[in-house]
Structure formats: structure tokens, C-alpha cells
Design a protein around this nucleic acid. Structure first.
Lengths: 210, 210
DNA sequence: GCACAAATCACATATTCATGTGAATTTGAA
DNA sequence: TTCAAATTCACATGAATATGTGATTTGTGC
């Protein structure tokens, strides 16, 4: 018997899913609340469910924040997000927070049931569209890197020197130019990047923002 | 009509899948070969299929290597891996190489059909077990980070200030301490990290070495 | 040829940083 | 309690950096 909890603020949807799941022979769904806070209250005084279906947009604490809190206290509870949001950011945040699955709300009741069964069998239910976005995160982690700061080749050299922790003097030696030239380049780099210290240049560079 | 190609060296499986898919009204599967090399030869002289089902363990070039070559030449072809391997490494390599889906070989024929339909509809078919491993990659990407540089909490604060590009003065203001205290902390940080400039601390920190 | 950006160099100065030395207070572990 | 580490502050000095104001040379495009 799989025990299921629901956190969903839309009463109609919540009741629909609860009734359907509770009707299944292998499942029990007695707890359906409309906020993370209520679920936390419930968990304090009752046996925790095996699986929680959770919305993202909720009154009070967001579902994504809720994942972290619930998983921290009750690491054995598996959480499936059930939401209308299909933007990469929310998906990613949910999975990083500890969700084990991510379904879109147009998912049919039998599919939800199947997803829960999948989950307890060691799988991770995901709508195919979600899986697609997850995969895209994998195979192109740098499609949007176009900081394009218009640094000239020489300026990039100087930045590399800074990142290597070199002083102006050492950079000058490395490229066999005068320290005043290094200063001049750095002045221009600062202008282009809108910064005013080595530290910021190094930070920007290592963050991939150059 | 979805055009499908198969690369699979097990003749029985290959024929079975080919016959089943070709039988579908919305699909056509005329090309079924047993190596990436043969598929490449075929692609040179024929219209490329929309989707290729690909095994990993193949005579000659591996399926994972094949993904990269095929996607480079024919970026519009969607590739679904169909294999017995469920280890994270092969899954990850396949997705990074450009596969759009990953199914295990025990997947039923109707599920394969459904997966292909999912794929052309913009989804990414994955067995739930595979999805699970993919998710695990997401929500614990830092099990191996053990730089452990023994910085105290306060020292870490100072490092954060440096990374934010602040001057000693501004760090002092941020934490409401004197600039000499900041100096003292930085002195200790330099000792612990064996460096001797802000630049190096920032670089180390942003590289995750602190 | 001419305008213009890039790269080079120079001199000057105020600020910030690195480092040395010394010390008081707090805190947690032995 | 006693000791070590952490945190706090002070004073001092030479090195490095940030910024201003120049200038020369070279290559590119129009």
C-alpha cells in the first residue's frame, strides 16, 4: 500500500486527484492540504506518507522551497511536482531541491497513478516535455554564453594574466611589454567591463562573464 | 509520416522493431542496419530519416560515438538510444553527445512507438529508471568536493567579500568590524591557502577550491 | 591619404594592499 | 580551570594598484 499526500491549493483538482488515488487498491490518499505549512503541521503528528504530490504556486511558502524543508526533515518521502510551469528554471530548481519527479498538470489521472508506481519502483516520472528540457541542460550547458565583452586579443591576454594571479610587473614580463602598457590595457579593460579593480575582473572572468 | 532508421546488431530485435514500426500507419521504417558505419553510408545516398533508434554496443564504432558523428552531419535527425546499459556514465555520455532520448531494451514495442511520437512532438523519451539517474545527476552534483581548507566562518565571510570585489574598507563596513580586523583575517586566510594576494583568493574560491 | 582603433610607452599621484608586530576578548575543548 | 583557537583592534611601512593626462606607432577600412 502506497501512502500519498497532496499539497495543492486548487480544491477541485485536489479533490479529484485525492479521490482517484484513494480509490486505487494499492494506494491510500488521506492527506490533501493546500499549503506546505499545513503539510508540515500534519507531518509532525502523523505517520509520513511515502509520496507527496506538490504544486509549485501555493499560498504561503512555494512548493520548491517546501521540497527542501520536507526532504530535510523526512528524507524518505518522495516528492513529485505537479504543476503548470514548464520553464527550465522551475524544473531545475525543483530537481536540485530534491524532487524525484516532475509532471505537468495536464497529466491524466491514470498517468499520475502510473507515475507514482514508477516512482516507488525506483523510477523518476517526468513528462516527456520536461525530460526534453532536462536533457537540454545536459547536452548544451553553454548555449547562452555570449557575454561578448569586446575585449581585444591583447586585453584578453592581460585578463588571463590577472586570473593567473600575476602582478602588473609579471604580466609585463610575460608579454615582454612595459608595465605602463599593462596599466593602459587594464584601464581600457576596466572601462569596457565597467569595473574598477583586479578583483572584479578576475571574478567576472572566472564566472564566464568575459 | 515519420521516417525511422534503426542501428542494432541483434538481427532478431532489429527485425522485430522494424516490422512493428513499419506496420504503423504514421510511420515508415525502411532502414535497419547493424552498425554506425553502414548507417553513415546509407545517409550519404538517401534521404535522412527523422529519427534513429540506436544501440550502444555495436560492431565497429560504438553507438555513443555514432551519435556525435551523425548529429554533426545531420543535426535534424533525432536519436533515441535503445540499449541494455543503465549505468550513469553511458546515459550521461549519450545525452551529452546529443541523444534526445534513452530507452532500455525491455521497453515494449507500443512504448517504443509512443516514445517516437513523443519525440517528434518535442518531448524526450526516457525510461523512468533512466530519468531517475538523470535527476540524480542534477540534485547532487557535489559529492566529490572536498577542498576542505579549514577556513573559519568569519574567514569565509571575508573571502565572500573579496569575491564580491569589495575593498578592505567595504568588507569592514559590511561586517561592521574595523579594517584592521579585516587585514588580520586576510593575513590568516593567505597563510591557510598559501597565497599572497586578493586575486589568488578570488580565483581559488571561484574555482571551488575553498 | 585619412580617420580610427589597437597597442605601445611615460610620468604623476592618491588609494589600496601585503605584511610585520603586538595585544585584548571570547569561546569551546581538554 | 587552563589552553588553544577565533575574533577583534591598533600602528606602521613598502609594494601594488587605480586613475589622470598625455604621446607614438601600426594596421584596417573607406
Amino acid at each position: 500500500m502506497i501512502n500519498i499526500g497532496i499539497v495543492e491549493d486548487n480544491v477541485k483538482i485536489r479533490n479529484l486527484i485525492q479521490r482517484f488515488l484513494d480509490m486505487q487498491e494499492s494506494m491510500s490518499c488521506k492527506v490533501a492540504v493546500d499549503s506546505v505549512e499545513e503539510m508540515l503541521d500534519h507531518l509532525k503528528e502523523h505517520e509520513p506518507p511515502d509520496v507527496i504530490l506538490m504544486d509549485i504556486q501555493l499560498p504561503g511558502m512555494s512548493g520548491i522551497k517546501g521540497i527542501g524543508i520536507i526532504k530535510k526533515e523526512y528524507p524518505d518521502i518522495e516528492i513529485i511536482m505537479l504543476t503548470v510551469y514548464h520553464d527550465s528554471h522551475k524544473i531545475f530548481d525543483s530537481l536540485v531541491a530534491g524532487a524525484s519527479g516532475y509532471l505537468l498538470k495536464h497529466t491524466s489521472l491514470p498517468e499520475i497513478k502510473e507515475s507514482i508506481e514508477n516512482l516507488v519502483a525506483g523510477g523518476a516520472p517526468m513528462s516527456p516535455q520536461i525530460a526534453r528540457k532536462v536533457i537540454e541542460h545536459f547536452n548544451k550547458p553553454e548555449p547562452e554564453k555570449k557575454p561578448k565583452s569586446d575585449l581585444t586579443a591583447r586585453e584578453q591576454d592581460i585578463v588571463n594574466g590577472l586570473v593567473d594571479g600575476l602582478s602588473y610587473k609579471l604580466i609585463a614580463d610575460r608579454y615582454d611589454i612595459s608595465i605602463d602598457t599593462v596599466r593602459a590595457h587594464i584601464r581600457n579593460i576596466y572601462k569596457k567591463l565597467h569595473v574598477n579593480s583586479k578583483a572584479e575582473v578576475i571574478a567576472k572572468s572566472l564566472r564566464g562573464e568575459i
